[in-house]
């Protein structure tokens, strides 16, 4: 029996992408990466620089975690304000190591669509848009994205529209963690309760599973950090992450 819930699986495995001494950024509309950065700050025994879209630099939250990942609460304890133009310029001049960037659809090469379902000119659904991803994705060192729904609608062979393309290295879903190898997203590790066949069936692009391993269980420190950030389970309930229904 795993100690992961679908929610803790996504947040903790996003946190595990953060590396010592690097510059890491979390943006707008990015609740789970915000939590992942805070988990890493509390659970891991190393330093990294956490920039966020509210302008915070290594913020140390005094009170509860804000619902909005762009809230000025994320500048608490910050000793500088590093605002939008600054962090974009930092990124395009090569100073951003890891950025968490959202995506509605992801293809097997790690290109992303945040713009439309259907044609761009006459969309069936107008999506929010890519935010900074078209500028950041080609200029940062590594991007990571997440999907709360692992399905053939979100992980696709062909995007409706290519909002951004570049250095997307990692994708975390409730089922698995993808890592880009030789230009393609391959399954690096998978949730202990799912099988590789189930992952393949729920994934719309061809993916290499030859090196996939079960994802290591969460540590006590990771779980404790996440509990401290979401003590009453509000974020977990809002995220409403479920495993895909798989045929028995």
């Amino acid at each position: 029996m795993t100690s992961y819930t679908p929610f803790s699986y996504v947040v903790i495995n996003l946190a595990r992408l953060i590396r010592p001494s690097e510059v890491t950024f979390s943006g707008v509309n990015s609740t789970l990466p915000m939590l992942a950065c805070l988990v890493a700050k509390r659970a891991y025994d190393f330093n990294f620089t956490w920039l966020n879209v509210a302008g915070g630099v290594d913020a140390e939250l005094a009170g509860p975690v804000p619902l909005s990942s762009g809230d000025a609460a994320l500048t608490a304890g910050s000793r500088s304000i590093f605002a939008n133009e600054d962090f974009y310029d930092l990124c395009t001049r090569g100073g951003m190591d890891l950025c968490f960037l959202g995506a509605s659809q992801i293809d097997g090469t790690g290109a992303t669509n945040n713009s439309v379902i259907g044609d761009w000119d006459t969309p069936k659904v107008r999506l929010p848009g890519g935010g900074g991803s078209a500028v950041m994705m080609p200029t940062l060192k590594r991007a990571a994205t997440w999907r709360t729904e692992h399905s053939t609608r979100t992980l696709v062979d062909k995007l409706f529209f290519q909002t951004a393309k570049g250095n997307l290295q990692s994708v975390v879903t409730p089922m698995c963690v993808f890592d880009k190898r030789e230009g393609r997203l391959a399954v690096a590790s998978y949730h202990p309760d799912v099988t590789l066949d189930e992952i393949r069936a729920a994934t719309g692009f061809e993916t290499d599973i030859s090196q996939a391993q079960p994802t290591p269980e969460p540590t006590e420190a990771e779980l404790a950090a996440l509990r401290s950030l979401d003590p009453d389970g509000t974020f977990e309930a809002d995220a409403a992450i479920r495993m895909p229904e798989v045929a028995a």
């Binding site: 761009w120 994705m137 290519q162 909002t163």
Partner: peptide, 25 residues
């Protein structure tokens, strides 16, 4: 913001980093 910076600087356009591979262009 690059477009705004161009207007703010009084020039007709502004270079911007990235965008390569995006169909937004």
């Amino acid at each position: 913001t690059a477009g705004l910076r161009a207007a703010g600087a009084g020039v007709p356009f502004m270079p911007v980093g990235g965008v390569h591979g995006s169909q937004i262009a």
